[in-house]
Design a protein around this nucleic acid. Structure first.
Lengths: 197, 197
DNA sequence: GAAAAAAAATGAACTAGTTTAAGACTTTTA
DNA sequence: TAAAAGTCTTAAACTAGTTCATTTTTTTTC
């Protein structure tokens, strides 16, 4: 059996934690929906109810909220091989406070709420997959937010650049500022300063 | 069958997500270890390898790291009905960077790494329990860190006080500062200011 | 490929939070 | 129950990051 590129990518991702038989692979893939988003288009907007969780097979998207002053706070950049969505809204069916906007033409595989539930019934192994996926996300989330707290903005910038060299040059400086948690003006100052060295 | 108080507490916690038979309950409880920590004693110290995950049945503990300047950053206060530990170290067997110190005499139920693995073999339902527990933690973690970013220290203080009125008066102002992410001096100013209203 | 829109740079005035230091108050311990 | 240790308060000088306003550069769009 040979699969299309996007399917190979997601099956590989899943195989980090669980082994699937050919039949299970096909069953799993049949529960997914292919989605395309053009650059600047929204995959999700505040007020929507998240009815999918997404896996990115191509492109780049930014996940962000707007604070009371309308300033964007970017919580992640999602590129190939990343999972994204708003799990809170997906689980509770409450409206999301997030925007997810493509910064490049992107391709995704989505799983709907109904199929997500079905998945656990059909292939209980997926409880384990998600248990381990969430565990890993939780670990890196905790690590990031704990580590970030004691660093200056400049240190956080250098860290991001070192950790995600492939992402840095795919996003604007303004969006990076929104992720680092500072104003674009201060981001500009930091970059000038760091490059001067 | 009647259980001791601490066992009722943890079974209740588990039953939020999965139903266990009497036999499964007893099996589960048999995999747990009872642990007592005196006030000011450490449950975990940086450099240790976390060999347990903990459920608190009585008391209060603070979970924190020390930054390069030796300043404490408190990531959570764990009280009755909370889970705590360092999942990263528990999973990877790498040394932890956390300290967990009891701020009151405390009682916990611990699950060892070996028993945690065993649990999934013996009662596969627990994959689901942990999947849902981690999912829920992830949601509140993301919510907290995203929400916190746009608030001033004063707003974060008021929010904490409103959300956890029962915790505020069990901890020192200094520890609260370490949690809010400010100096004890500034915490003192904020409290004076807020109370003056 | 010109016009419009968005992003980036620069600088001056400002503010939330830090640092340092010292004294008052509380809690712990012997 | 006295001494020691830790916590809280106050205040002045300081700094990382913001705000606002303007100009330059880059990207997008028709």
């Amino acid at each position: 059996m040979h699969y299309k590129k996007s399917h190979i990518l997601i099956l590989n991702n899943v195989s980090r934690f669980i082994d699937l038989t050919e039949l299970e692979k096909q069953k799993y893939l049949s529960l997914l929906t292919e989605i395309s988003v053009k650059r600047k288009a929204f995959l999700m907007q505040a007020g929507d109810i998240a009815s999918y969780e997404y896996f990115i097979t191509k492109g780049c998207l930014k996940v962000y909220t707007l604070d009371d002053d309308g300033a964007p706070h970017i919580s992640m950049f999602a590129v190939e091989d990343y999972w994204t969505g708003d799990m809170a809204s997906f689980m509770t069916k409450e409206p999301t406070r997030y925007f997810i906007k493509a910064t490049e033409d992107s391709e995704l595989l989505g799983i709907s709420r109904a199929n997500y539930e079905l998945l656990f019934q059909e292939i209980p192994k997926f409880e384990r997959f998600y248990r381990m996926l969430y565990q890993k996300s939780l670990i890196s989330y905790i690590r990031r937010s704990n580590h970030g707290i004691s660093l200056t903005a400049e240190e956080r910038y250098i860290e991001f650049k070192t950790k995600y060299p492939n992402i840095v040059n795919r996003i604007t400086q303004k969006d990076l500022a929104g992720y680092i948690g500072i104003t674009p003006e201060f981001m500009s100052k930091i970059i000038t300063k760091v490059n001067r060295r």
